[in-house]
Amino acid sequence: MPQLLILHRQKILLISLLAAALLLASALLGEPKTLADIDWIDVLGEGGSALAVGFWMLMILGSRPAGRVTNLLTLGLGFMFLAMWADTLDEFFHLASSQAWEPMVESLAMPFGIGVLTWGLWHWQQEQLAIRSQLQKREQCFRDHLWLDGLKQLGRVDQLEKALAQSWYFPDEVRVLVMAELEGFPHFERRYGHEEGDRLLRESAELLMLNLRSGDLLCRYARDRLVISLPQTTPAQALHLVGQLRAAVEHFAFRDESTGQVLKQNLIVGVAVRQPGDTPGDLIQRANLAVRMAASGSGQSLAS
C-alpha cells in the first residue's frame, strides 16, 4: 500500500492543502466558539464521517494504479471529505452571516463530490468488466482449482459440459475436444511430493493458457488431466494447435526448487472429433479415450 500511495502524492497533497486552507480561512475569518458553545455530539458525528471518507480515499489510492478511474474516485471522495471537513470546522468557529463562502463550500462540494464519485464508479465498473473478460480464460481454469488458490470447489467438468451444451447445437462451434496430461505425472508426484506436483500443474497450465487463443477454454478434468475446448476449429487446425502446445511444454524449463535442475516435461494430448449423434458427455469420454491412446502411443492421438 505505501508504494502505491507514492503514485498519488499530488492528489493527496491537493486535498490536504485544500483542507488546510479551509481550516486557515475559518480560523482567520471566524471567531472561535467557547467550549460551552461547542456541540460535541455534532463534532463526533461530522468529524467522524469526514475522517471515514478520508480513510476510504486513502484505501482506494493505496490499492489502485494511477489513471483516470483513480482520479475520479479520489476527487469524488476528496470533495465529499472537504464538505464534511467544512461542516466540522463550523462547530469550532463562528462565522458572520456576511461570510457566504462557507455554506457554499458545504452545499456545493458535497453534490459535486457525489457526482464525480458516481461518474468514477461507472468507469470503474466498465474497467472491471473488461478485466473480467480478459481473465475469463484463466479464471475458468483456476477459479475452482481448490488446492492451487484455496477457492471453493465448483463443478469442473460440469462447467465445461455447460459451456459445450450452450453451443452444442451449432455444429461448427464444437467440432473437437482436447484432453492433455503430463507424461509420468504420478511418478513425478511420488518422487517430489504433492506440493511440487501442484506447482508443476499450476505452471504448466499457465503456459498452456498463454499458447491458447482467446475463445478457447481450459478446464481441469482431474489430477493432471486438462480438458480444452476449441470452438470453431477443424480437426486439422486442432492438431496443429496441439503440436504447438506440446512444443511449448517441451521447451518449458521447470526447475527443481532445491537443486535448480531442469525437469523436462512432455505433454500427452488426445484430440476427439465430434460424431453425429454425440452428446457432450460422449465427446468428453472420446477425448478420454484419445488421451489414453496417446499415452500408450506416440504422445498424440486423434479419436474420430
Binding site: V157, Y221, D224
Partner: peptide, 8 residues
Amino acid sequence: SIAAHQVY
C-alpha cells in the same frame, strides 16, 4: 462426476 475415479 466420475472424472477423479477415471483419472486416478
